[in-house]
């Protein structure tokens, strides 16, 4: 059977956390995205797919990119971290 993977893109507090996010989506939309991500991680859907987390992470030295952000997505910033609420710990590469 062909191998498959599922990309979990930008599931970060910055985008999903309405309270603390820099550019959050609607709370209901964020909740829906998290629900799908959890279903993937608990193997309720896409059972054979290999989950891969993809996150925005600007290095501190990226001054030009960061200058456009009110709260830069530096690797140390809280908004950089994964949104809480996953029922399965992400697999580290």
């Amino acid at each position: 059977m062909p191998k498959s993977a599922v990309l979990l893109m930008d599931l970060q507090r910055d985008f999903l956390n309405v309270a603390g996010g820099r550019t959050p989506v609607e709370a209901s939309d964020g909740k829906a995205v998290l629900q799908v991500a959890n279903e993937v991680l608990t193997k309720s859907i896409l059972v054979d797919a290999l989950p891969v987390f993809v996150m925005n992470q600007f290095p501190v030295t990226a001054r030009i990119g960061n200058s456009f952000s009110m709260e830069p997505l530096l690797s140390e910033a809280p908004a950089q971290s994964l949104m809480s609420g996953f029922s399965v710990r992400a697999r580290k590469k």
Binding site: S4, A5, V6, V54, N56, K93
Partner: peptide
């Protein structure tokens, strides 16, 4: 990411994301 997919011989890719029009 490309190296990872190639090393695991991934042929189908699903996407779960926040901004369909962006990333």
């Amino acid at each position: 990411l490309e190296q990872y997919f190639r090393s695991h011989d991934v042929q189908y890719i699903y996407m779960v994301g926040v901004f369909a029009e962006g990333c």
